[in-house]
Structures are given as structure tokens and as C-alpha cells.
Design a protein around this nucleic acid. Structure first.
Lengths: 341, 341
DNA sequence: GATTGGCACTCAGGAACGGCGAGTGCCAGA
DNA sequence: TCTGGCACTCGCCGTTCCTGAGTGCCAATC
């Protein structure tokens, strides 16, 4: 059983440890946070907390540091999300408003977030799965080479080279494009597949092969996880902060490059209720036990499109990182909503 | 004056130091490389080399390590470019042949190069400046929103959202696209600008504003340095190799993220005569004094399109890195040539 | 004149040691 | 339930010492 004051002690430990990166002892606590009790009493509480596995002592008789579980309790129950300073809010607005196309928006968002938090920032491109098709176009490049361009309402533009497998003449390419556009424009990408069958069947026999191949390409482009990827900024922060993350920096960098692990984590977090979600230490994947991520959903028109977030050592400033992530996610949502207009 | 045997000693020092990352002394040299002389003689030669600033002793009475100048002499005059193993060649072929579109090719190239060399690999997208326009298309997204798509013969596809500034009706958008296509298709991007004036002048007055805006966007898309960027892989190698690069890892990571410094370096190296070029230590930019890059030009049809390369500590294996870079660059050239067909 | 063995000298790096101090657990008393 | 006191632990840091690799120089040799 953890008492109420015990939790306050936990809060103090987390905050001091995050600030100083050194184990914090009972004396330090009574000095910095005016509890009305003595160090010995705090020691008692700390024994409780250690019992409950919320804190540990790195070695006998040194201060305590929070465990993953301790951080979790702190984040879930103890922490206020301290609001950003007006200057920071303004920076977000100024920085993001200048962006024009989606690539630019994503790139600016991560750079901004990385600067605000001094951590590695990540952003997921708007998911194909949750978007609607706005426009499909087929462009003829050469006699038997076509380019398929798909524009989604999230602002994403996907393109595929298609080998038609036959000569395509006149404006047949455009005609295929128009047929596809009619078939799927305005529909959620998840519903597109079924409408495509009809297009293949109704195709001009003269360009049946070409049509079929374009349809395959379109199907691939609209697959739920098609082109899922992360934009990243601030990797240098990983190595800056002295000697956190003991030796695992390499592993973390690899995970960032691979993306697949992080994409999975992002996906999992999407299921959670609250807008801003966290994964702490061992809640992450292999090799990332010493890190945490904080992510927030953004998305135009109420349907979530993707997530942005930051990754850093478990010993990070959750309060302000969560605030920054939330702020950027919100701004991003508004921005994409405008673009869509 | 540096004698002939002096240079052989330099070679030995570079090779041993690269292999062991420890300063190499006279005794080690006579043991590992069968010079026909004694350690004392080598010491004499080493004094010469130190005089010529090709090597230095980190502290009085320890072995010597090469200076930047020493590496430069080694690379320019002493080193053979040791050929890749058949297995490696095969890996290149197998890995790259599976790629389909340009993005994929670039991504695979850097990953491959990073694996072959155990260094950070970089690749420059085919430069807009050295390409020809293959196709221009304008797609209508909404009443006053257009999408400009430009396809270059290097396989690059650029797209820009354009706010038309007016209502665009019927197939006016397509007409604008066709006019632009006629005007610039087949021309080098550098010559495109002048042809565009005529398009603006000859535009249908009803869509004059829209035409002008699309033309501006096209001009931007074809600007010589438009969309210049690097693809990167293997950043984790930077931090893996123990304690090279003393404290500058952060700076190096930042430089990689910024891209601008590296893009400038790539540009400068393009002017050099030989296909595979190097920049060593202080020949690089601020913050990168402890690193070197090895780059090689690739390009379809004889005109260079861009460069691929690796970045690592000055203490790197130049011989095999240069071989790997050359191999990948050549393969890339062939691949893009095929694609262009 | 180049090469060589010998010799005295220099230093970085590691091991051993000891003192300091922050922090703990426990206990008896308020 | 809290508090002050006390003995104890142990990581950290500075000191000292030693070892070994490596050097520069020199007189002797080929």
C-alpha cells in the first residue's frame, strides 16, 4: 500500500532525478520540497515505494531513482501537463504556417518538436487507411509506361510507375484514369478495393492488360499500410545528453532507421483512449528498454490520420514533452483541416 | 624530403592504425611488415615523416598516427583500390535489381553501401540541373486548386500544389498542362525557363492568372538546386565504433540532418576529375574535421546525375570504401540507364 | 653514408589504497 | 506516527606507484 504522501515523494523523486540525473536521497527531498516532515520519515516512505517497485537504489545506500513502473504512475496519476509559454505557442504558429505542401508540413513539424523538447522527434505520415481518395490520374510517359498519381484528402500524393505491358494509344491512358477516378474518388481507401473490380470488367478490351496493371498498382497504393513511414529530426539529441542510455545508443539509432518497430508502436498507441499516449522503458520494444516515447494523434476532421511524438531516455521531462506534443498535434490538425478546404 | 622507403613506412602506419586504432611504433612495423631493416632505421624514417607533417605522435614517446596530410598522400599515391569480393558484387546486383521506382533505388543504394562499408552512407538524388524534362502534367484538384506534376528523365517526379487564384473550368487545367508539356518536354531543365515566357504570353486570357501561377511553380520546380537532398543510412555506425570522433558525434549528426553542408561538399567534389573523390579531415567543413567522405559520381548516359558516398572517421579503410563506392556508383549508373529506356 | 644495437628517458594507463561524504536502516523516545 | 541519533555501506576521487611500449641519440659496424 502506498500512502498519499508516498506519492508526493515519488513525484519529488521523479522531478529531481529528471532535473539532475543523479539518484536523489531523503535529505535532498526535504530540502528542496517543503514537506512538513523530517528526512527519516521520508526514508520510511521511500522504503514503501521501493517495496512497491516504484523506485530502486542503484546500489546499497545511495539515493533512489524511479523504475519504469514509477514513471508510469507519475505520468498517469501525478503529473500536470504544464502549458507552453506564449513564446513557444507563437513559435509553433510562425514555423508551421509557412509550410505549403504536406512534405513540408511534416518536415517542419518534426524539426519544431525536436527543438521544443530537445529530443528526437518523429511524425507518421497521414495513414492511407484512414483517408479518402480525392483524385486519381493516369499520365502516359511512353508507349507502354504509365504513371499513376493518387491524391488523398490528407494531402498525400502517391505515385507509381506502371509498366502497361502493351502499347497504349491516343487518350486511352487518360480514359483509364478517368474511369478509376469515377470509381473511387470520394471513397475511403478501405472501400476502394471492391469498386475496382468493376473497372477491370468494364475496361476497353483494347487496353485490358494496361487497365489491369494500373488497377493492381492502385490497389497497392491504397493498401492500409502502404507507404507508412516516419519523418525524423533531432537524432543528434540522442547522443548529446551525456551518458544516458548507457550503451544502447546504437540500438536506438538502428530502430529509428528501421522504422518498422516504431511504426508498430505508433500503431498500437493509436488504440489508446487519451489523445496523448506514452510508452515507458520496458513497455517499448527490445533494444528500446531505456527509452520512452510520447505521442499525440493528429487528424483532419475528427478522424485520426497519424501521430507525432518524441523519443528520449526514460529519464525525460514528461510534463513538458507531453505538452509540446499535444500542442504540435493540435496545430497540425488545424493546419490539415485548412488545407483540405 | 621523404624517401621511397619513407612512403612505404607511411603506408604501413596508415594500414596498421586503421586496423588497430592504436598509435603504431617502430617495433610493430618491423614485426608486421617485412622491411629488411631494423627498428632503429624505421625510427629514422619516422622522424622524416614527422618533419614532413605526415604523421604525429599523440604524446612524447608513443607510436605515431597519420595526419590528415598523411592520409591524403596515402590515398593519392600509395593505395590500390582493392576489388570487391565476388560475393559482394553479387550482393549489389541482387539487392539493387529488385528496386522499382527511383525512391526505392536510392533507399536501397544507401542501405547497401552502409552495410558494405560499415559507415554512414549518403546518396544525392539525381540533380534537377543535369536532367531533361520528360513530361509535364497539370491535374485539377478543386475549382481553384491545381497539382503540377513534373517528370524528369532521371526518374524523378516532382509535384507542387498550386493555388490557381481563380476558378478554372472545363479542361482548361489540362490545356495548360499540354501547353507546358509542348514547351519544355525534352529540353534540359536549364533551358526551360526561356520557353516558359511564351506559354504565359500565349495563354488563354480566361485562365491567365492560373497559367501564370503554374508557370511560376514550374520554374521553381526546375530551378537548378530544387529539391536537392540526400538519402542517408547507417547513422548508427557513427556511434558504434568505440570512441573515435571524440566528442564531435553530435556535430556530425547535426551536419547530416542539416544536409546543407554536405550538399555543398558533394557539389564541390563534382568538379573533381576522377570518378571517386575524397575529402579528408580538415578538408571538410567546420565540425567535420574528424571525418572523411568518399564519394563517387553516378549518372545515366554519361552526364553525371549525382553522387553516392560514405562518411566516416578520418581513420577509415579508404581502399575498400573507395572500391565499394565505385562499385555501387557504377551499378547505379547502369540501373538508371536501363530505367530510362 | 646508411644501418644497427644499446641505453637512458618519457609517459600513458592501470592497480592499489585510503579518505570523504552522501545516504541508508534501525531504534528508542516523544 | 514521527523524529533525532547512530553505526554502517559503498561509490567516487585523488594519490601514488609500477609497468611497458616507445622514443631519441650515439658510437660502432657494414
Amino acid at each position: 500500500m502506498v500512502t498519499d504522501r508516498g506519492l508526493q515523494v515519488l513525484r519529488a523523486i521523479v522531478q529531481d532525478y529528471v532535473a539532475s540525473s543523479e539518484p536523489v536521497g531523503s535529505k535532498t527531498i526535504v530540502e528542496r520540497h517543503s514537506f512538513g516532515v523530517s528526512a527519516a520519515t521520508i526514508r520510511g516512505d521511500m522504503a514503501m515505494l521501493e517495496e512497491a517497485e516504484l523506485i530502486v537504489a542503484p546500489h546499497t545506500s545511495s539515493g533512489r531513482i524511479p523504475t519504469d513502473k514509477g514513471y508510469r504512475v507519475y505520468v498517469d496519476r501525478l503529473q500536470g501537463m504544464q502549458p507552453l509559454s506564449p513564446a513557444q505557442r507563437q513559435a509553433i504558429a510562425r514555423f508551421l504556417d509557412e509550410a505549403d505542401d504536406l512534405d513540408d508540413v511534416m518536415a517542419r513539424s518534426v524539426r519544431l518538436l525536436s527543438q521544443l523538447t530537445n529530443q528526437v522527434a518523429l511524425a507518421q505520415y497521414p495513414s492511407v487507411a484512414k483517408a479518402r481518395v480525392r483524385r486519381v490520374e493516369v499520365v502516359q510517359l511512353a508507349a507502354s509506361r504509365l504513371l499513376l498519381v493518387v491524391i488523398l484528402d490528407s494531402g498525400r500524393v502517391e505515385q507509381r510507375m506502371v509498366d502497361a505491358g502493351q502499347q497504349v494509344e491516343g487518350d486511352a491512358a487518360q480514359a483509364i484514369g478517368r474511369a478509376l477516378d469515377v470509381a473511387v474518388a470520394g471513397k475511403p481507401t478501405t472501400d476502394a478495393e471492391e469498386s475496382l473490380v468493376a473497372v477491370v470488367e468494364g475496361a476497353d478490351p483494347a487496353v485490358a492488360t494496361a487497365t489491369a496493371r494500373v488497377v493492381v498498382a492502385l490497389g497497392e497504393a491504397l493498401a492500409p499500410t502502404a507507404g507508412d513511414r516516419l519523418v525524423i529530426a533531432g537524432a543528434s539529441h540522442l547522443v548529446r545528453g551525456r551518458h544516458d542510455l548507457s550503451g544502447s545508443v546504437t540500438l536506438v539509432l538502428e530502430a529509428i532507421e528501421e522504422q518498422v518497430t516504431l511504426l508498430r508502436l505508433f500503431g498500437e498507441m493509436d488504440a489508446e483512449a487519451s489523445a496523448v499516449a506514452t510508452r515507458i522503458g520496458r513497455e517499448m520494444a527490445d533494444g528500446l528498454e531505456q527509452t520512452s516515447i510520447v505521442t499525440g494523434a493528429y487528424g483532419a476532421g475528427g478522424h485520426e490520420a497519424g501521430r507525432v511524438g518524441v523519443l528520449g531516455p526514460t529519464r525525460m521531462d514528461y510534463a513538458s514533452n507531453m505538452a509540446a506534443v499535444r500542442a504540435v498535434a493540435r496545430y497540425l490538425t488545424r493546419l490539415l483541416d485548412d488545407e483540405e478546404r
